[in-house]
Design a binder for these strands. Sequence first.
DNA 1: TCGCAAGTGGAGGGAAATCCTTCGCTTTTC
DNA 2: GAAAAGCGAAGGATTTCCCTCCACTTGCGA
Lengths: 220, 220
Amino acid sequence: MTENTAQLRADARRNREQIISTAREVFLEQGTHASLEEIARRAGVGIATLYRRFPDRHTLVRQVALENMALVRAEMDRATAEHPDAWGALAQLIRRMVDLRLGVFMPVLAQSLEGDLRGEGGTLKVRRNELLERMGALIRAAQQDGQLREGVTPIDIMLGTIKLSRPLPVIGAELNELLIAQQLELFLGGLHAVALDAAEPLDRQRLTLDDLDRYLKAAE
Amino acid sequence: MTENTAQLRADARRNREQIISTAREVFLEQGTHASLEEIARRAGVGIATLYRRFPDRHTLVRQVALENMALVRAEMDRATAEHPDAWGALAQLIRRMVDLRLGVFMPVLAQSLEGDLRGEGGTLKVRRNELLERMGALIRAAQQDGQLREGVTPIDIMLGTIKLSRPLPVIGAELNELLIAQQLELFLGGLHAVALDAAEPLDRQRLTLDDLDRYLKAAE
DNA sequence: TCGCAAGTGGAGGGAAATCCTTCGCTTTTC
DNA sequence: GAAAAGCGAAGGATTTCCCTCCACTTGCGA
C-alpha cells in the first residue's frame, strides 16, 4: 500500500495478495497472535516468502489493517453513491463489511496496534477516526430520517460487524456462512427503526440438526 | 457428575469446581484446544491438580460439557416454571444461557467430541438431543402464540447464543459485557414477532470511542 | 531464446510453550 | 495428632513457532 508494490514481479505481487487475504481470515479466526507459519501454509507459500515481504508480525498486521480500511472506505463510497437514503446506504455498508472479514480491525479500533500512533505519524489512528466520523454522519442522517434506532454509535456498528463475521470453530465454513447470514439479518432488523412485519419469516435457509452434522462432516 | 464427586475432600471438590468453571471460560475464548496449563494457572491451581482430576483433555472437555448441559436443563426448568408464556420462558432461557458461557457446547452440538457416541453409550448425544427437543417444543409453543418469528430452529438458538457469548479478544472483559448485552437485545428483538416500538432506544449504555479506549487501558 | 536478477521453498537452530510425571510438603478429617 | 488425601512446583520430553540461510526456480527484458 504505502510500499512500492507496483514494481514487484507479477508472481511476487500475486503471492503478496494471497498472503494478505489469508492473513485476514486467520487473524479473524484466531486473533493477531496466530502462527505465521500457518498463514504461510494456508496461503500456499513458503515461510520465507512471507518473511521477505513482511519482516515481522507487526508489519503484516499493519498492512492488513491498512488494506481493510481502504476497502471499507471504498465500500462507503459505493454505498452512499448507490443509495440516496442514509439507512439504505448504512445497511448495504454493514452487509459488505461483514463480507469483508474485518477481524484485524479490532486492534486498530482499540489503538492497540503497537508501533503506530507513536511514530509513523499515527496514520492508522487518523484513518480510523476518519472512518468512524463518516460512519457517524451516516448514522445521524439515518436517525433523522427516522430509519435507525436511537442510541447506536459507530463503535456499536464496527464491533457488532466484527463479531458477526467471526466464525465459530469446529463447525466448518459453510455452516458459518449460514449462521452469519442469519445473524446479520437479525442485527439489521434490530437496528432498523421501522416496525417489523410480525408474520414475516426470517429470510434465509433454515438450519436443522441434520445440516449441522452434514456440514461438520464435509468440513473435516 | 457421573463420578463419585461426593466423596472428595472439601478442598478437592472446591478446586474441581474452580477448574471446571475456569475451563468453561477459557474454552469459550480459545476453543477446546486451549492450554491446560493456562487453565490451571487461571484457576489458581497447580497443574498436577488438574491432571489428577482430569487425566486428559478429553475428560475435562467432557465434564465441562456435561455440567453445561445440566445447567441448561436447570435453567429450562426454571424458565418454564417462572413464565407461563412460552416466549417469556424462551427469552429468559436465552438470557441465562448467554450468562452461562456455553462455549464448549459447540463441539457437543457438532458431535465432534471424540470418545463419546461410539462407546460410553453416547450419553452426551442422548442428552443433547433431549435438550434440543425440549427447546424445539418451547419454540413451537411460542410460535403458536404468535410471539416468535417463524423459521427459527433450536440450532439457530444454540449457535446464536454461543456466538453471542463469545468474547472478542483485545477489548477486555467489561467492554465485552456491554457488547454482549447489546447484541443480546438485538437478537431477542429480532426473534420476537411483536412489532418494535420504532422510537424506543436500545435499552443499554451507549458505547463511545472513549469508552473503548478507557476499557482497553483498564484491561491491560 | 537466453541470461540473470528477482523470487521461491524448505531445512534447521534456537527459544518458548505445552504436555505430563514424579515427589516432597500441606491440609483435612477422624 | 496421625494417617490419608490432596497439593504445587520442578523438570524432562515433545512439539510448536520464530526467523535465517541457501541452493534451486521463474519471470521478463534484451
